[in-house]
């Protein structure tokens, strides 16, 4: 296990600084540079938080599924940890997405929840499914089994995410604003640049948090194993 010698948290600091700069710039631009949207006014600016968060959340869920798949192929529990952290962070971001989406819906459509809105509804379904991930994971005691079944869940749910979005969309009318693409709905340059920067910033935030949690968990495991070895040496040696 020479790999363990590497410092787990390497690269975390520059990543965190880069995240702070990117996100700071993006939201600075949101407040001071982008114009107020003609229909909705100031409240439309929640879009720069809500949409990047939603995109990163879904990407995180799919990433968790990919890590889970690698875990199943290699049997290496490192990948299960990665998958777990990815899903766990996405779950928190998903809650944030639902809340900001709800606020936006209230401000622009007048209701906290709009069932005709396929993206919102799909998100809720995905959120409900992933809410079962932690109860499932922590109700399986054997560590190998836990890793395997959590990965199976991650793969199934990761595949479910796009399927669910397609199915819900087919069932409902199109009311959600299409943000990118579509000539009649194109954004002015400043909005587009800010939006793209916000996506990059949110992705970096996700990466930083993911790396931070992985580092913290690996460090704790290393500390545990050092403690156990110390205890063994202490009790093993004649006093």
């Amino acid at each position: 296990m020479t790999e363990k010698r590497k410092t787990p948290g390497r690269g975390l600091r520059p990543l965190a600084i880069l995240t702070a700069i990117t996100l700071g710039t993006a939201y600075g631009m949101v407040f001071f540079w982008t114009p107020n949207e003609a229909d909705q006014g100031f409240v439309q600016k929640i879009f720069y938080l809500h949409v990047p968060m939603a995109i990163v959340t879904l990407g995180g869920f799919v990433l968790g599924g990919i890590f889970g798949f690698i875990q199943l192929r290699t049997g290496d529990r490192k990948w299960d940890l990665r998958s777990y952290v990815a899903i766990h962070l996405s779950l928190m971001l998903a809650l944030g997405t639902l809340i900001t989406g709800s606020i936006w819906a209230r401000a622009s459509w007048g209701h906290w929840w709009v069932w005709e809105e396929p993206v919102l509804v799909s998100f809720l379904i995905v959120f409900l499914l992933y809410s079962c991930y932690q109860p499932l994971r922590f109700s399986i005691e054997d560590p190998d089994k836990q890793a395997r079944y959590a990965s199976v869940f991650a793969v199934v749910a990761g595949a479910f995410v796009p399927l669910n979005f397609a199915a819900v969309r087919l069932a409902q009318a199109y009311t959600h604003p299409r943000v990118l693409g579509g000539a009649q709905n194109s954004m002015p340059g400043s909005m587009r640049i800010t939006f793209l920067l916000a996506i990059v910033g949110m992705t970096l935030l996700y990466a930083t948090l993911w790396k931070f949690e992985i580092t913290s968990k690996t460090t704790r495991m290393q500390l545990g194993s050092i403690k156990r070895r110390l205890e063994r040496e202490n009790t093993g040696s004649p006093a």
Partner: peptide, 29 residues
């Protein structure tokens, strides 16, 4: 999956219902 968990009977419906929503949408329509 659910049978491996301690929470077996609790988890099965919680996992199954969201996963069954897409066919449910089509079936009810």
């Amino acid at each position: 999956i659910a049978v491996q968990s301690r929470l077996r009977d609790l988890l099965a419906p919680l996992l199954a219902l969201p996963l069954l929503i897409p066919p449910l949408i089509a079936a009810t329509h």
